[in-house]
């Protein structure tokens, strides 16, 4: 049951989008978000949607995954649309009953917001679908490296994130094992009131903490044995390289951005 939890939603593949330099992908995502917020008409948003759908098609990620990424924010979508519909009272009245006034402008703003949020989520989840968490942290480290100048420990932070990501599946598996072992000794994790249930977690948490500390110690020792001493002068096995693909993608994205700006200027 615990194994069903997926952390990071990387979907391995070999497409054009997968092969893009992760640093560029992060920048692209930021540009895409800016694009969505720059657009002030349905036509402009449409351009953004076309872009993200195109990227999705190229990445060969199953369509169902796109819908899956929207599921957790369904409540936010409903909340914002209801809020917009009910509280925008300017424009032509479409429906009026007691204190409820629904106007045409309210409806259009709601639709606009919903499309913007949906596009935002689809676009950003495409980044996590096509980039493995480890590569992503690597790219973040590179992008943030200028901050080293002002003494931000970028490398240490990225290393911490990498290690945390690396150990999540291990810990999930371990928890599963310990739970089974205690259940085999008759531990009852499912019934009783809150206090009883909290108490029932002790036989699971104690061994989990003990083994986490042991693991941390072993890892630290192993890293020291291999002369790890932080980020200075460290080289990488997998160098991030940008190539023609990244510039092609950048060019395409810039084109879309230009169209959105032109739409804004001419008020389309």
């Amino acid at each position: 049951m615990l194994k069903d939890i997926t952390i990071g939603q990387f979907f391995p593949g070999n497409s054009f989008v997968h092969k893009l330099d992760p640093r560029f992908k992060i920048v692209f995502t930021i540009i895409f978000i800016v694009m969505l917020f720059v657009a002030d008409s349905f036509a402009g948003l449409g351009i953004g949607i076309v872009f993200v759908l195109m990227a999705f098609l190229i990445s060969k990620i199953p369509f169902a995954m796109m819908l899956k990424s929207l599921k957790p924010i369904l409540s936010i979508i409903i909340f914002t649309s209801v809020l917009n519909i009910l509280f925008i009272r300017t424009g032509d009245v479409v429906f009026k009953w007691a204190f409820l006034t629904i106007t045409k402008q309210g409806l259009t703003t709601a639709a606009f917001m919903v499309i913007r949020i949906v596009a935002l989520i689809i676009g950003t989840s495409l980044l996590t679908y096509t980039t493995s968490p480890i590569v992503l942290t690597d790219a973040i480290e590179r992008l943030l490296s200028p901050l080293k100048k002002i003494k931000v420990p970028v490398h240490a932070l990225a290393m911490m994130m990498t290690i945390a990501l690396r150990f999540i599946p291990t810990l999930v598996e371990e928890t599963d094992k310990i739970m089974s072992a205690q259940k085999a000794r008759g531990a009852d994790l499912e019934s009783g009131n809150i206090i009883q249930r909290a108490k029932a977690l002790v036989p699971i948490l104690v061994p989990l903490f003990v083994s986490s500390f042991r693991r941390a110690e072993e890892l630290a020792l192993a890293m020291e044995c291999r002369c790890y001493h932080g980020g200075d002068g460290r080289t990488r096995m997998k160098q991030l390289k940008c190539g023609y693909r990244d510039f092609v993608a950048l060019f395409v994205l810039a084109g879309f951005m230009a169209v959105v700006i032109v739409f804004n200027v001419y008020g389309i």
């Binding site: 371990e174 094992k177 310990i178 089974s180 072992a181 205690q182 259940k183 085999a184 000794r185 008759g186 009852d188 002790v202 036989p203 699971i204 104690v206 061994p207 003990v210 083994s211």
Partner: peptide, 20 residues
């Protein structure tokens, strides 16, 4: 099921990791 667990004792691999 709980009764069955008392009837069938299962010792997992590396059982020392379950001590608490």
């Amino acid at each position: 099921l709980r009764d069955v667990r008392f009837k069938v004792g299962l010792v997992f691999q590396y059982p020392e990791y379950q001590l608490f």
